[in-house]
Simulated assay, not measured.
Amino acid sequence: MKKPLPTICAAVAALGLAATAAPAHAATRHNTLPTKAARLAGITALGGGYAGWKQHAEPSRSTSLLVGVTAATRRTLGVDVSAYQGNVNWSAQWKNGVRWAYTKATEGTYYKNAYFNQQYNGAYNVGMIRGAYHFANPAYSSPVSQADYFVAHGGGWSKDGKTLPGMLDIEYNPYGATCFGKTKSQMVSWIRSFLNEYKRKTGRDAVIYTTTGWWQQCTGNSTAFNSTNPLWVARYSSSAGTLPGGWPYYTMWQFTDSPIDQDLFNGDISRVRALATG
């Protein structure tokens, strides 16, 4: 289960949302209030988005179908975390078989995860292969500025064999219209520009995290990225289901949020290392 966010005032102080982090006119230009669904998922303020938040807002579902899924051969267990988890007990996660982890670093151009160092470095320190992710807000600012912000605040990459390429979390909008007020072609262009800037900055193709439903609705099921960017699909079920965008296979699959967001890498640990090495 997710930890509730602090009150808005406390969150501003604790998460470093300085007055200079967002333009003074942002409140009039952009919807910064979480939707009802987002509030049900524990998002109480701008900056609170996290991978798979909408699934958390939906009615509880049985996890009985997930029994044994992590024991599948040639798949490697991972987790993804954000500020909701606070300080993570990485030693316990390692003992539970987790071998890779992604940590939310940024959102838009206004938010940095205050727990990032503990989460990102903590995973590394126990031996995990780690990566960082950016929660996209295409309604707020340009894709280039968001990619630059991400790289500058934890989303970079180094060829150390332990750092995965950054992940673009592009999914349901917690603050308003599902597709962030963009047409399908505009959304594809936004995503392309973000990915191009990220690659220009780091030399790596970022991972794309999304859901099949959102991708179909908001990009028209675009096939523009299925040969360059690894797919991380979210589906809380016993299988990953129909994949979006013509991807022939998933690289990661977020399959549950209980007791923490859990994911499978579609390959053994050597494949995780290969993605990290580039």
Rank of each mutant, 00 (worst) to 15 (best):
P138Y: 07
F116R: 02
Y172G: 02
R200A: 15
I260A: 11
A24L: 13
F194T: 10
P34S: 12
S158N: 10
Y236R: 02
G108C: 07
Q119Y: 11
T76N: 07
A45H: 14
R74P: 01
S185Q: 14
A24F: 06
G220R: 05
A83N: 04
V188F: 07
K162V: 13
T212N: 14
G156E: 00
T277G: 05
N117R: 07
Y84H: 15
T219P: 05
E58V: 01
I129N: 01
T163Y: 09
T212Y: 13
M187N: 13
K36E: 14
G97L: 11
L5F: 13
G155N: 08
N125L: 13
C179Y: 10
A105G: 01
G108W: 02
A132E: 06
C9H: 12
N125G: 00
Q118N: 12
Q254T: 13
S185F: 07
F225K: 05
H153Y: 13
A206C: 08
G156I: 03
Q262I: 02
Q262P: 00
D268V: 08
S222W: 06
L17P: 03
K162W: 14
W232M: 10
Y84Q: 12
Y133D: 09
K182R: 15
W94E: 06
W90I: 08
D148N: 14
D169W: 08
T212G: 02
Y172C: 01
G156F: 04
R235L: 15
N121S: 12
R192C: 02
H30V: 15
L15D: 06
T256N: 07
A147I: 11
N87D: 14
A139R: 00
T163C: 03
V272D: 07
V233W: 05
W232S: 06
R130S: 13
A21Y: 00
V81C: 03
L33A: 14
T76F: 12
T202H: 08
P244C: 12
G156W: 04
L5V: 09
M167R: 04
D261I: 12
K3A: 14
Q262H: 13
T251C: 03
G246K: 05
R39W: 03
G47Q: 03
H56V: 15
S227G: 14
N87C: 02
K162P: 00
D160A: 09
I260C: 04
Y84R: 08
I8D: 12
G181T: 11
S82F: 09
N173G: 09
S60H: 04
C218L: 11
P59S: 11
F265H: 09
T35R: 05
G155Q: 06
K104H: 06
Y50P: 02
A41N: 05
Y198N: 01
T277P: 00
W247L: 10
G68W: 03
Q85Y: 06
G42A: 10
W157Q: 03
R273W: 08
F135P: 02
A37K: 08
F180P: 00
W94R: 13
M1P: 08
K199C: 06
L15Q: 14
K182C: 05
S64R: 10
A51L: 15
H30F: 15
